[in-house]
Design a protein around this nucleic acid. Structure first.
Length: 587
RNA sequence: GGGGCCGUAGUUCAGUUGGUUAGAAUGCCUGACUGUCGAUCAGGAGGUCGCGAGUUCAAAUCUCGUCGGCCCCGCCA
């Protein structure tokens, strides 16, 4: 006989007393007193206590002895108020319990490899192998629901504003630049491959040419690059593109969208507009293009202060065109030599060769390796320039510009965590704008800062020829709590400029036509001015969930070696499959 | 490609200078128990010390290699 559930476990309350109900779910806990048996029954709503009493129903009580954690059962019973002294304030359903009259065991379970609860110390390896159990934990359910709610609010918001969700292909063409592509061999075209999209970039531009005007898609993107805590081979993007717009339209739209979503999902109201910083400014003040501005510790350039000092390290760096920058740690004078050694180790990963420091306990008590090279008044001058007070510590790095910035921005974050300077549950969003259009890569080649379809600023067009590195892009990043959560640009919509940019990037017109011919052609058929943005849904969810890894908000993520521990993908395939695809595997 | 941390019972960990039968907590199994909610009490089972080789009278422990997980650099237009 079938028991059809009448309520979710955790939705019952005192007002339901004396009701007959049917509940179904997982056995979370069993407390067997021989006579009475208590079982905590749980589902996605939460848990409720069942009471098995041999006097009420001998059969179910006998069966309940054999029930174990993780089993799936359905029960029919009556909602009863608990006695005053046996109320459990920890449960939403703690004032009531279900007196079981009938029990049906729907499934048994092996003993669980780890407890289904929030605070577990289990290895991630084990969690990933049994991901379906890991996902049963309330915190994981919360994360997945959170992502869904964000997803849903974004859709609602964009829908209300006249956007249309349009799909784009997953089997598409490999692009020469950017990240490595995931390739898919073609059976029907021997020796040829599709690529999984790194983003729907070109297709959404084509949709603008097609006149759809306002497009969005919540879409998977693929990149075959090495993984990190905030990077997975496939991630989900909120992809947006509009026609006949400018930067301000995007800022306005996205600020409204974030405000709406934050308010609907978390009840947080955001201050708009978000502050805007130029690329140059954030790099100078924070050493990175994705600063966390929830705390200070800003970088200061002391190059001019030390340009003629006795300290050779500083002088030589400056002679070679490098920089000396530093930051002030309020009340940092408590740092020990050991702590400082640790800081030095931290920055060496970023290529910094050394760290200079001043421990400014008081005007009389200054500890620093620089005392050998600087007079006391010179040191005080530096402290004054850094706006220091007694009890502060100061750290300086001298090197070429990028090393100084990267090392100091890392140091800044490290110290902020160490001194608990980052306010919890506070979010700060900002725009980074005025990026250069190009930058030089390691081989000294010009590469796009954003991507090769980004429009240069109109007024910089003349610079494109003589000094392309000075051209500013019409691109923008949105940064939240030190994470880049999105970025986009106004695109090039005129064929001539697009051809010119590809040429500057070192592509012959033949190569350009081969790879992007369809785009160039599309631009020549009345492409409207257009632009857009892509928001990283996983990163956004991660931050809002307060998680440190993107894997915590992706139901079935991959390990650092891009392996799925649950399914064991990737795996070898048989000869026949390879043959069909015209592939041979090299030993 | 490189650096760091880690791998011992189902799980989380301890394991001293290389030395007896590798321990603890929790989980699991059996039994007792009518108001528990971290139930309690009594008893019990459970180990390829990731894998391989080497050094040694003797290896969880030392060496080399290898596999796997995490963090990071490179990479990620």
């Amino acid at each position: 006989m079938r028991l059809k559930r009448t309520s979710m476990c955790s939705l019952l309350r005192g007002k339901d007393k004396d009701k007959d109900v049917v509940l179904a779910g997982w056995v979370k806990k069993r407390r067997d007193h021989g006579g009475l048996i208590f079982i905590d029954l749980g589902d996605k709503s939460g848990i409720i206590q069942l009471v098995f009493n041999p006097i009420i129903d001998k059969d179910s009580h006998t069966q309940a002895h054999s029930i174990r954690e993780g089993w799936v059962i359905a029960v029919k019973g009556k909602v009863k108020m608990r006695a005053e002294d046996s109320i459990n304030p920890k449960l939403k359903t703690g004032k009531i319990e279900i007196i079981v009259k009938e029990l049906k065991i729907l499934n048994t379970s092996q003993p669980l490899p780890f407890p289904i609860e929030d605070k577990i110390e289990t290895n991630e390896e084990v969690r990933l192998r049994y991901r379906y159990l890991d996902l049963r934990r309330p915190i994981m359910q919360r994360n997945i629901y959170l992502k869904y709610r964000i997803n849903k609010q974004v859709r609602d918001f964009l829908h209300k504003r006249g956007f249309t969700e349009i799909e784009t292909p997953f089997l598409t063409q490999s692009t020469p630049e950017g990240a490595r592509d995931y390739l898919v061999p073609s059976r029907l075209s021997p020796g040829e491959f599709y690529a999984l999209p790194q983003s729907p970039q070109l297709f959404k531009q084509l949709l603008m040419v097609a006149g759809f005007d306002k497009y969005f898609q919540i879409v998977r993107c693929f990149r075959d690059e090495d993984l990190r805590a905030d990077r997975q081979p496939e991630h989900t993007q909120i992809d947006i593109e509009l026609s006949f717009i400018e930067e301000e339209d995007i800022y306005d739209l996205i600020e409204k969208m974030f405000s709406f979503v934050f308010n609907e999902v978390l009840g947080i109201s955001l201050e708009t507009p978000f502050p805007r910083f130029s690329y140059e400014e954030v790099v100078s003040r924070y050493g990175t293009d994705k600063p966390d501005i929830r705390f200070g510790l800003e970088l200061k350039n002391i190059s001019s202060l030390v340009s003629s000092c006795k300290f050779e390290v500083f002088r030589k760096v400056l002679e070679k065109g490098g920089k000396v920058k530093g930051l002030r740690v309020p009340r940092g004078s408590s740092l020990s030599r050991n702590d400082i050694e640790k800081l030095i180790r931290e920055i060496t990963f970023y290529g910094a060769k050394g760290l200079s420091w001043i421990i400014f306990a008081s005007k009389e008590k200054i500890r620093s390796p620089l005392v050998k090279f600087f007079s006391k008044s010179e040191l005080l001058k530096i402290v004054e320039y850094m706006e220091g007070e007694e009890g502060d510590a100061f750290f300086f790095i001298a090197d070429e510009k990028t090393v100084v910035n990267e090392a100091l921005s890392h140091l800044r974050l490290y110290l902020a965590k160490k001194f608990h300077l980052i306010p919890e549950k506070t979010h700060r969003l900002l725009w980074v704008i005025n990026f250069p259009l190009f930058e030089y890569d390691k081989e000294g080649k010009l590469a796009p800062c954003h991507h090769p379809f980004t429009s240069p600023r109109e007024e910089d067009l003349p610079l494109l020829e003589e000094s392309p590195e000075k051209v500013k892009a019409r691109s923008y990043d949105i940064v939240m709590d030190g994470e880049e959560v999105g970025g986009g640009s106004i695109r090039i919509h005129r064929r001539g400029i697009q051809e010119r940019v590809l040429e500057i990037l070192g592509m012959t017109s033949l190569q350009a036509r081969e790879k992007f011919g369809f785009l160039l052609e599309a631009l020549s058929f009345g492409a409207p001015p257009h632009g857009g943005i892509a928001i990283g849904l996983d990163r956004l969810t991660m931050i809002l969930a307060g998680e440190k890894s993107i894997r915590e908000v992706i139901p079935f993520p991959k390990t650092q070696k891009a392996v799925c521990l649950l399914t064991q993908a990737p795996c070898p395939v048989n000869e026949e499959q390879l043959k069909e695809l015209h592939l041979k595997v090299e030993e």
